[in-house]
Amino acid sequence: MSLLSIAGVSKRFGGIVANQGISFDVAPGELVGIIGPNGAGKSTLFEIITGFYHPDEGVVSLDGARLTGLSPDAICRRGVARTFQKLRPFQGLTVLDNVMVGALTRTRDVRHARERARELVGKVGLAEKAEAHARTLSTGQRKRLELARALATEPRVLLLDEVTGGVDQRTIPELVQLVRDLHAGGLTVLVIEHNMRVITAVAQRIVALQLGEVIADGPPDQVTRDRRVVEAYLGLAYTQ
C-alpha cells in the first residue's frame, strides 16, 4: 500500500548523473526523510516528483496514477505540494495574499479562499504578519509562509525542501514541531533535511542518497548506522 511511488527514476544533465534508478515508496501517513551530501540528487528528485524536471527514465505515481509527464501545476492539483530550498515567496504580495494563491487552487470563491488562508496563516504562527509584504519577512517567517502556502493547496503529499536550513537555532524547534503536528494530523510528508538531529528525531524512515543512487532505506537508527551512509555523509557531518 503506497501513496507516492518512485520507480526507477534517472536524470542526467549533460554528462552528470543526478539521479540513477531511484526507487522507493511512501505509505499514506508516513513521514520520510531524504538525506545525502551536497550533490547527491535530493533536490533533483524533488524537481522530478513535482514535474519541474522530466526524468530520462522512470515513473512517479500518486495512488497508482502516473504523475510523470504532467505539468507542475497539474501535479499540484493532483495533491502534491512542495516548498523550495531557495525560498520563493511572492515578494510583492502580502502574507495573506500569498497563501490565498494556494487556497484558490481548491476553491473558486475568493472570500472563502481568504478565510481559509487566514486560518492557515494563524496555524503557522504568522497571524500578526498577515498584512505584511512577504519581502519584509525573516527567513524563518518565510519558511512558515511557504509551508502555509503549500498547505493551502490541500496536498495529499507534502514535499519539504530543507525545513531548517538557514534558520536560527531558536526557531528550529518550532518549525520541527509544526512538521510533527502536520504529520500527526495525518499528512504524508517527504522531507529533505541536512540537520541530522532533526531528521532522526522526526522521520519514521530515512532514504539516503549518494551520487544519485539510493544507498540506504529504513528506520532512522538503522540508516544512521549503515556503513556507507556514515562514510558518505555522517562521517563528514560529525567530524566537521
Binding site: 513535482t50 519541474f52 505539468s71 507542475p72 501545476d73 499540484c76 492539483r77 505540494a81 512542495r82 523550495f84 520563493r88 515567496p89 511572492f90 515578494q91 510583492g92 504580495l93 495574499d97 490565498m100 494563491v101 494556494g102 484558490l104 487552487t105 473558486r108 470563491d109 475568493v110 479562499a113 502556502r149 503549500a150 493551502a152 493547496t153
Partner: peptide, 27 residues
C-alpha cells in the same frame, strides 16, 4: 484585481515557478 484568476495571474508575475507549484495554470 478581485477575481481568482487575477490573484493567480499576479502570482505568476511575481514568481512563475512558485505559482506553478501551487497549482496555478501559469502558461
Amino acid at each position: 484585481d478581485r477575481s481568482r484568476r487575477g490573484y493567480q495571474l499576479v502570482a505568476v508575475r511575481e514568481d512563475e515557478d512558485a505559482a506553478l507549484s501551487l497549482g496555478v495554470p501559469a502558461r
